[in-house]
Design a protein around this nucleic acid. Sequence first.
DNA 1: TAGTATAGTGAAAACCTTTCCACAATATTA
DNA 2: TAATATTGTGGAAAGGTTTTCACTATACTA
Lengths: 326, 326
Amino acid sequence: MPTIKDVANKAGVGIATVSRVINDSGYVGKKTKEKVLKVIDEIGYHPNEIARSMTRQKNHIVAFVLPNNKHVFFSELLYELEQILFEDDYKVMLCNSSEETYKEIEFLNMLKNNRVDALILLTNNDIEDEIDSKLPIISFDRIIENVPLCTSDNYTGGQMAADILIDKGCEKFLFIGDDAQGVNTPVNTEVSKRRIGFNERLKERGKKQIYNFEYPLGNYLIQPEKAREVLLKYPDVDGIFAISDAVGFTLIKELEALGKNVPKDVKVIGFDGGSKFFDYGRKLSSIAQSPKKIAKALRDMILNFSDNQPVKDIVLPVKFNEGDTT
Amino acid sequence: MPTIKDVANKAGVGIATVSRVINDSGYVGKKTKEKVLKVIDEIGYHPNEIARSMTRQKNHIVAFVLPNNKHVFFSELLYELEQILFEDDYKVMLCNSSEETYKEIEFLNMLKNNRVDALILLTNNDIEDEIDSKLPIISFDRIIENVPLCTSDNYTGGQMAADILIDKGCEKFLFIGDDAQGVNTPVNTEVSKRRIGFNERLKERGKKQIYNFEYPLGNYLIQPEKAREVLLKYPDVDGIFAISDAVGFTLIKELEALGKNVPKDVKVIGFDGGSKFFDYGRKLSSIAQSPKKIAKALRDMILNFSDNQPVKDIVLPVKFNEGDTT
DNA sequence: TAGTATAGTGAAAACCTTTCCACAATATTA
DNA sequence: TAATATTGTGGAAAGGTTTTCACTATACTA
């Protein structure tokens, strides 16, 4: 592979001049520039990005640490993030943690190693102690002290779900979601505000019969058997708010299997975006997040880190996508 | 951030010694080693990976160029690839091309730039001219001259689908899939062998009524309206082989909407893995690829590139996953 | 005991850029 | 015209590693 030196020699100029040409920086005479560009083209020179990273001490790579890129919402977010960062010449390194703390820590170390310039962290583990808040970390959906947060307005989303179910005439409510508290180590996730907003609004509006069901963390999914068990335990429920669309869809299937009509007997609201991502033959009503807006917010935060600007929390609005399950 | 020099100074040794300690290479006295490790721990030294890449001219990053990480099969493959490469300390850079040639070219340039060590290319565009076969490129599902190929045995998969439908008593067959030939520029994709294997086996076994329907490329998906149009066009069909599970599921829904019973009136086979990835309430019969095996094959090919070993084509077996649609 | 492996160490070169600085040539201002 | 800006250029340092090489000290061999 030819280097900048080869270009300089062949063009009869100094390497500094070549550098100025390829970076379009500083003064370069018109004729010199043309000559250099010609040589670059002739010998097929491509600047070595590793060497560039070396001097700049930046490599324009962002790590996205998440439990699992297969989850339909994460998948969408990952896509939008990659698309939008492409425009700023940032690349995305995919880091599936599988919810394993040791992996998350290894990924976090990539910041100290200069393997990546910034890191977006989506975790449900208790790893606060492992986080150096001086590093360029953005937390998604999870409150970590001194780490900038990007999230959707989960609390309002929960309130909206309550309002909709109440307005549609429901009387006995069930929230179902995974236990964001972890097993013994309470972690402060934004996602749990879905439940909190939901329950608080129900109480505000004088609704008494409220059930909560939370199971150990499982990627915002629920086993069908588990879902059925819950539904059998609370047979009188007529309004369900599910922590995610995936859970919502599983519930609908189980409800129908139990002979219930959705939405006539039971109304169901999910969270994420409804049938935008899934298509099970039913259009799930859902509190929708916007992956595109989230991606843009993350991009802005990353650019602020890069420019040494202050990085502020961003909470994005949600909206109700009405389907045929309410 | 402390550097190797800081460690060397504080430990009263040369930087070469520190390097030998952190890389566990060459001779280092026991006491010296302990002293160096102690200092590293004390001052919190982390080797700068950019500098390491500089000397090694390798950065242990693999680019995965694909149309779209949201597609359920790609999503699975991406996941498995990232998981398996993690073990060898390779990181995966996600490169969504959205089927755009200019993006694919930009991603290919990352090899010349030393931005990545190797690249996995999953494309349906005619970009043979842009490919320098001396670069460490692996083509997935697409035949490109002088570029090593990794794929599933699509031809046999097509044959299997034919055999199964015939054995189940079907008489009038339809293949439905996207037009791998592109609009005007024929590209040589492995995926089109699904159709070829299917059709050839049908002919071998004396079946005459064979319909093909191919639509412009669209990520192995089909619009429901389009699906219905095709089904109305060929109302006598009783055995369908769909190029992907996603297409297969859409077909089933449309068939049912048209009052047909699956599998009684029409049998449907998809391709990829069946209900392993999807869950629409039906278990789709499918010719299954193994993302895990593919990921392993890709890993082996990448390691061979890295070791300057010859890199050979790999064709992986498929198997039939019986669901309730045949 | 002399001669040769083996173990242990550090200085310096190399990897390929960017950027600072010094300097030269030309253009502009008073 | 002299003084000062502006434009244009190249040498050299810096960025943080790995690796080669030369060298010393110790252990083994005959």
